[in-house]
Design a protein around this nucleic acid. Sequence first.
DNA 1: TATTGACTTCAAGTCGACTTGAGGTTGTAG
DNA 2: CTACAACCTCAAGTCGACTTGAAGTCAATA
Lengths: 140, 140
Amino acid sequence: MDIGKVSTVSRLPTSTLRFYEEKGLIESIGRHGLRRYYSPDVIDKLALISLGRNVGLSLDEIGEMLLPQGFQVDRDLLLSKADELDKKMAKMTAVRNGLRHAAACKAPSHMECPKFLRLLNIAGKNRSRPKNRIMSTLKA
Amino acid sequence: MDIGKVSTVSRLPTSTLRFYEEKGLIESIGRHGLRRYYSPDVIDKLALISLGRNVGLSLDEIGEMLLPQGFQVDRDLLLSKADELDKKMAKMTAVRNGLRHAAACKAPSHMECPKFLRLLNIAGKNRSRPKNRIMSTLKA
DNA sequence: TATTGACTTCAAGTCGACTTGAGGTTGTAG
DNA sequence: CTACAACCTCAAGTCGACTTGAAGTCAATA
């Protein structure tokens, strides 16, 4: 497939595909003249990358885990990423509960509502800021 | 408290505190000369902000929900953010499962392992890229 | 064969979330 | 009363993840 086809089926702009290739996340199977050609396999790989981005992994993190044949590398890394996801989900659950409570609670100030504070303090454990960066807005 | 105290207890640099103030996320209760003074309440608010950042909300999103007295604004917004968190957690669960499977599975290529693909396809539903941006690495 | 639209490269721009730096002010310990 | 650490402002820089733009190449259709 050429890059245009990959772009339409993956729903990613060609600029992003070139950028991913430059970063070593995907590779073309060759060129026809200047033009990149891709194996259809790239589609699944791109889906995996998008999924990773969607759950908050950086391109570098994804790159560490993603060899030509899918997720791989040392199993410990994979498992530790899985654990990180679990931790983050625990926090997200607390925040979600806090939001639902705030939406339901009649208290004038949530900062003084013990239930609200309790919900969020559970998650407040381990309150470190991320070392490098941000996360997608939950648009996804 | 002065900004230095807030910084040490919140574990956020003063530059971040000034930046948050500029964005309207927090406010000082006044000045002594040039120097900002804060009510102790700001600490909880900063904890809420950090928590929000940690689970992937942008400062703007947090700002929408965070009035002087904590989470507030229209309940529908709060509930829809809660729903977004649920959706993202569903994806994260799928990825986590995929990672654990990949770590355990002896198949040479996960891209051809039906179990792996099935795990991730669950999450592959609704595969759109976020409109604006990223998410913290899971350092937190 | 000439055009055109899809491709190419490379450099620079953008956005969110901060951080850093230069240059200035001030509350307080000595 | 002076030194100085801690504050201040404002502009510019950084980082990840892309996007945009200029300028060029080329395969396929008219």
